[in-house]
């Protein structure tokens, strides 16, 4: 059973005041997310990430298509008790304290009594807010609110956690903590589905990612598979500060840093470079093929899809 199963989900909005015209926010989306994986949903702003998440949460109704979470229908309250959701830039009832808010959400999720108090205390500690449990949310910073948002999403120990831009508004330490938390959730066997446009986070965390742009799914797969394409170049690092003339003449880009030199050359020139370094008795530290980063892959995909969209228009 898939944790999330999306079959041809489409969302078309009507825009305009007098003369309504359709605007497709999401083209047929087919996507499966396996249980226990961290899945990154990547795309620039306005790509359709939040629309997809809202449809999965039952906040927006799909124009066509269907989706199932943990094998159950999106409107099934039993399923909803097993999922957690952090919306983008969350806003909470600011007249409540952090503890009151979590108790409220806990009760709505069916947690009650002593179990609820214990869970609230534990989850506040988990997101780094144990000392401000009694403080009203109107006094919280944006980063603290984001932490409260994460706390409410995991409070009832859901099996699948949906996080919309979870790193938004967090400082580097906060981002690190959220990354650790997501890894903990995975270690506990939970499925994490998160949308982001911060690619370093996705690269560091995700088992698999999907790239969405202009409402269309552009790619889906393991990060390693998507970024495994070599660029036909190698990076050679050697000791010293000397760059042999023969290496300069083959057009290598060289950077001297401290007592090492780093050169990127075409694959077919790598033997020439090695020979030149041996002749000069320079010690080679490393030789690795240059791989595509997720960011390069992402930018490339976006450019390609924009070109396609432009040519179709």
């Amino acid at each position: 059973m898939h944790a999330i199963e999306i079959v041809g989900l489409v969302k078309v909005y009507s825009v305009g005041f007098w003369r309504k015209r359709p605007k497709c926010a999401l083209h047929p989306l087919h996507l499966n997310v396996e249980e226990g994986e961290i899945f990154g949903f990547l795309g620039p702003n306005g790509a359709g990430k939040t629309t997809t998440l809202k449809m999965l949460m039952g906040l927006v109704f799909p124009t066509s298509g269907s989706a199932r979470i943990l094998g159950r229908d999106l409107n099934d309250p039993g399923m909803k008790a097993q999922i957690g959701f952090l919306p983008e830039q969350p806003y909470f009832y600011d007249y409540l304290t952090a503890r009151e808010l979590l108790e409220y959400y806990g009760r709505l999720s069916g947690v009650a009594g002593k179990d609820l108090s214990a869970r609230v205390q534990s989850v506040l500690g988990r997101v780094g807010l144990p000392d401000v449990a009694g403080v009203q949310l109107r006094k919280f910073s944006k980063g603290m609110l984001q932490r409260v948002g994460i706390a409410q999403a995991i409070l009832h120990e859901p099996k699948v956690v949906f996080l919309d831009e979870p790193m938004s508004g967090l400082d580097p330490m906060g981002r690190r903590e959220v990354r650790d938390l997501m890894e903990q959730l995975k270690a506990e066997g939970k499925t994490v589905f998160f949308s982001t446009h911060i690619l370093s986070d996705a690269e560091a965390l995700c088992d698999r990612v999907a790239v969405i742009h202009l409402g269309e799914l552009r790619a889906v797969g393991a990060v390693a598979d998507l970024t495994s394409g070599v660029q036909g170049k190698v990076e050679i690092v050697w000791e010293g500060t000397v760059v042999p003339t023969s290496i300069k003449t083959i057009g290598a880009t060289c950077h001297v840093t401290g007592d090492t030199v780093r050169a990127v050359v075409a694959e077919e020139s790598q033997d020439l470079v090695i020979d030149a370094l041996r002749r000069e008795r320079l010690r080679i530290v490393s030789l690795v093929p240059v791989r595509t980063t997720l960011e390069q892959y992402f930018v490339e995909k976006l450019k390609r899809s924009e070109k396609t969209a432009g040519s179709l228009a």
Partner: peptide
């Protein structure tokens, strides 16, 4: 407007 509803309706609340 304040999107407080999102975290309520994503729970088992009809």
């Amino acid at each position: 407007e304040k999107r407080t509803l999102y975290t309520v309706l994503s729970r088992p609340v009809r």
